[in-house]
Amino acid sequence: MDRQKKIETAARIEPCFFQDTIPSILADLTVELHREADNLGRGLHPESVAELADLVRMMNCYCSNLFEGHNTKDIEKALSGAEVEPERGALALKAKAHVIVQRKIDAMHSKGDLPSPTSVEFIAWEHRMLYHEMLEEFRFIERPDGSKVEIVPGEFRKTANDDGVVSRHQPPSSDRVGAFMAYCSKRFGLGPIHIQDSQN
C-alpha cells in the first residue's frame, strides 16, 4: 500500500484515545461537565431554551465556516431578513443556509423522527438540503490547480476530477470518500434517535 493510500485508510477517522488510563483530573472534569450540562436547561422557559438553541446553532455555524476561511459575522441579520452589507451578504446567506438545515435536523429530533445521524443516507440528505439552500457561488470547490468543480447536492465526490481543497484542509481523495462514509456509518451508527418520554 503506497503512503497516500495508507494515510487515507478509513479507520483514520477513529477518535484519539489515551494509550494507558485517562488522567484522573480529566476524568473528574468530564463528570463535572456532564453534571453541569445536565442541569443547564432545567428550570428554563421553553422560549428561552429555543433562543439558546438558535444561539448555539449560530455559534456552530460561525466556527465551522471559519474552518473554510469564511467570516460569517452577520448570521443573525441574514436570518431575520435584515439588510447586510454587500461585501458580506453572500457569506451571511451561506451561514443562513447552515442554520436553516440545522433547525430542520433539530425539529426531526424533537419529534423523535431523526434517523441515524451518521448513516450515509442521512449525511447525503443533509448535504442535499444544505446546497439547495446555498447560493450558487458556493456550489463549487477549488481543485489544487485552481480550477473549480461543481458540487452536486446530495452527491459525494467519486473520481479524481472531483478532488479539491477547502481553505487549508486537504480532504480525502474522491475515490476514498465512499470508504470513509461507509466506515463512519458502520462504526458510529446509532440507529434512529427516539425521544424517551420522561413520564414513562
Rank of each mutant, 00 (worst) to 15 (best):
D2S: 10
R12I: 05
Q4R: 15
V165A: 04
R3F: 13
P46I: 05
T159R: 02
I105G: 01
H169V: 10
H34Y: 12
D197V: 01
C184T: 11
D113H: 08
A107M: 05
I7S: 08
G146R: 05
M181Q: 05
N200M: 06
T21I: 13
M129Y: 10
P23L: 02
I105D: 00
G154M: 00
H127G: 03
V165W: 03
P144Q: 08
V49D: 08
E133D: 11
F188V: 02
R57W: 04
V120D: 05
D106Q: 09
D28K: 12
K96E: 06
F138Y: 15
L26H: 07
L26Y: 05
Y183E: 04
I195L: 09
F180P: 03
D175F: 03
S119M: 00
D163I: 03
D54W: 04
H98I: 00
Q170E: 10
C184L: 14
L40W: 08
V31P: 10
K158P: 00
D74F: 15
E150T: 09
S110F: 08
A124E: 06
D74V: 13
A10P: 03
E68R: 07
R103V: 01
D145Y: 08
G69C: 14
S24A: 11
M108P: 02
S110C: 11
I141P: 06
V166S: 10
G178C: 01
Q19D: 09
E32M: 15
K96N: 04
V152F: 07
V31I: 15
F67K: 14
L40I: 07
C63L: 14
R35S: 09
L52T: 09
E85Q: 14
R187Q: 03
T30E: 13
L55G: 13
Y62W: 09
D106I: 04
E76R: 15
M134S: 02
A11F: 00
S110R: 14
A78V: 12
A37G: 04
D38S: 13
S116L: 07
I123L: 13
S198E: 04
